[in-house]
Each structure stands twice: as C-alpha cells, then as structure tokens.
Simulated assay, not measured.
Amino acid sequence: MIAVRWHRRELSPMMAAVHIAAEYLPLLAFEPVLGHAGDPVLWPEGLSAAGSRFGVIGDRDCDHTKAEQSAANRTLRVAVEPGEGWRAYFDRQHSQVAGALATCVAGCRNPCAAMDWVAPSAREDLAVRAKVALMFADTPWCGCATPPPWGTGSACPRRRRCWTPGTAAAPRWTTTRSGTAPRWTTTSRCRACRACSRRSPPRTWSRPPCWTTSRPT
C-alpha cells in the first residue's frame, strides 16, 4: 500500500500508513510469542503477575512514560468495558501499549516480572525484533514528517524530500532499511536533514534489488 501511494504521488495517505506501521510494528514483533496480534482479551496473565510493574501508574522504577503507564493499565481491564470504552481505547491508547511492550523487552533499565511469561529460549529473538521495531520509528523515512492531524494533510512532505541527497538519489526507504540492520552503529547526524539529530546509517551499504536510479520530480 505504501508503494502504491508513493507511485500515485499521494503523500499524505502514504505518510499516514508509514506512521501507523511504526506505531504498531512492536505488536508484530510480539505476535510469535503472544499467538495473536495484540488482542486485549487474550493478554497473558504474566503481564499482571506478582512483581510486574506493567500498568502500574506512577511507578517511578518503570521506564514507561506516563501515557504508556496509563495505556498499559487500561489494556488490562478494557476487555470488560462497554463498547464506547473499547472503541476509545483502540482509538487513543492501543498503539502506546505496543511501544510499552517493546520497551519492556528491548529498553527497560529496571526489568520486572512483566515479561517472565516469555519462554527463555524466545527472549533473545524477541528483544532483537522489538529493538528493530523501536528503531524503525526513529528512522529518516518516518522522519519525513511528523504525524499530521488526521484529515488535514498539514504535515505532508514534498515527494522530493523523501529522497536522501548525497547518496545517488537513494530513497529514504532504502536508507531506513539499511539503518534498521545490525550494521547501524554510527551516531552522526542524518545526512538528509541537517536540523535533526537522528542517527545516520553507515556510508557503505549494499544496493538492494529494488533500488532505482531514477529521481522523482
């Protein structure tokens, strides 16, 4: 869908799809161990087991933001709420739960018992997938524009801006795919945007088959 929007020059819906993918990608990382795509009715009991800080609002030892703590707390009880509460949760908080789960396995400085339900043999792979999911949201492709107020298109970038100058017209999507690989170790400023502080992928990277030399207008 992203590719179709790009070739049809419909950048506003394309960027909406990119941001939605970035928000929910952590749930895709968790799907192999969850057995579903993040259904609040089917959350494992281990998320709220003794010693878990998942969904505990105001816990200063938890690395979740206040918004993530609130969303995590809500997701553990939304299954018994009426339809209005269910729809409001999915509209405003479910994507934050996705990020909170990824933080638990990939970036928590004070691990608790929230992820003890994950089999030890699956934790390493899960952590790698969650890290990639979090990195994707911070890549040049997702940085083409901030999420716009839906329906306005006010933050939609120009088509040319989605191409990284200085790299033989390599698209930001290709740069992003290289950047989310384990080789991404540099911390220099993004070559595509001097004003941002995003990390830039290595200067040497292999050209994928889908790479094209034609520059959009």
Rank of each mutant, 00 (worst) to 15 (best):
M1C: 14
M1D: 11
V4G: 10
H7P: 01
M15E: 06
A17T: 04
A21T: 11
L25Y: 01
L28S: 09
P32C: 02
V41G: 08
W43V: 08
P44V: 07
L47W: 01
D61L: 08
C62W: 03
H64T: 01
Q69M: 04
Q69E: 13
S70G: 08
T75H: 04
E81R: 04
P82M: 11
E84R: 12
W86Q: 07
D91Q: 15
H94I: 02
G99S: 13
L101H: 01
T103F: 11
V105G: 00
A114S: 12
M115L: 03
D116P: 13
A119I: 11
A122R: 00
D125W: 13
V128K: 00
V128F: 01
P140L: 05
G143N: 12
T146F: 14
T146K: 09
P147S: 12
P148T: 09
P148E: 08
G151M: 02
A155G: 14
C156K: 02
R159T: 14
T167F: 14
A169G: 03
A170I: 14
R172K: 12
R177S: 02
R189W: 12
C190R: 01
R191E: 06
A195W: 13
P202S: 03
W205D: 01
R207C: 04
P209N: 07
W211N: 00
W211Q: 02
T213Q: 05
